[in-house]
Computed example of a mutant assay.
Amino acid sequence: MTATLPVDVIAAELARLRAMNPLVHLLTNEVVQEITANVLLAAGASPAMIVAEEEVSSFAAISGALLVNVGTLYPARLAAMKQAVAAANRAGVPWTLDPVAVGVLDYRTQACREFLACKPTAIRGNASEIMALAGCAGSGRGVDTTTESEAAVEAAEGLARTTGAVVAVTGETDFITDGTTTWATPWGHPVMTRVVGSGCALSALVAAFTAQAPNRLHAVAAACAVAGLCGERAAAMSRGPGSFKVEFLDALYLLTPEKLREQVA
């Protein structure tokens, strides 16, 4: 049994993010860097993409949060990611794992399974990716999933219990769990799947919300809710994927706790 995340939690987490303006270290998919940076700026965080092995450890340690997204993974990037994760853990910096296409390709699947031992703060993926990480059978096509998010809730809860991470399995409805409590965020719009980087940008938003979060489950769930609510508003204002991207950034920038309550009411 899951319940919809209360609007008061979303509003409080959004206000906390805006007040903090956390610095977020993004080791992300090279295809989506522009939209990811703009999403964080619009939401109220500060993105930075430091990728050189000579710099990642120092920068991860002074960041508010770290994102590791394996979308465009290759040996040098993987080495930098491992160094950044180790530095973040030493400094107590929360980090989020986005296991793009895990379960489809062996190289990234093995890398992400090794990352699980490094105790990510949060994991955000689609149903197929979360089921693959949890060792369950799923179906996917690279970054796409052919499994409904609800079918992966049990796998997500198990993965959360074994890793200690807050796990978000995203889809038509997002489910966010710490292995004991599971929240649903039922907002969003299908056009979001037609814009490259919307999922990766959500993972960056998840990382941003975890910075100094007193309740990491609430933080991750609120990030999913904010993205979904802004997706709904942007879809209503746009004519297709191109204008949606602009409207989505504007919706994030203009969102306030008060407007959020009005939209959910």
Rank of each mutant, 00 (worst) to 15 (best):
P6T: 06
V7P: 09
V9R: 09
I10L: 12
A11P: 08
L23A: 14
E30S: 14
V39M: 01
L40K: 01
A43N: 11
G44C: 02
A45K: 00
M49E: 03
E54K: 11
N69R: 10
T72M: 13
L73N: 10
Y74A: 08
A79T: 10
A88P: 12
L97W: 11
V100L: 07
V102D: 10
R108N: 07
A111C: 13
A117N: 13
R124D: 07
N126Q: 14
E129M: 12
C136H: 14
D144E: 07
D144H: 06
T146C: 10
T147D: 15
E148Y: 07
E148Q: 13
A151R: 13
E157I: 03
A160L: 09
G164P: 01
A168K: 11
T170W: 03
G171I: 04
D174N: 09
D174K: 06
D178M: 08
T182Q: 07
T182C: 14
T185W: 03
P186A: 07
G188L: 00
H189N: 14
H189E: 12
P190S: 03
G197K: 02
G199V: 09
S203F: 05
S203Y: 10
A204E: 02
L205P: 01
A211Y: 02
Q212W: 09
A219K: 09
A222E: 02
G231L: 03
R239Y: 08
G240Y: 05
G242P: 02
K245G: 01
E247Q: 10
L254P: 00
K259Q: 10
R261H: 14
Q263N: 07
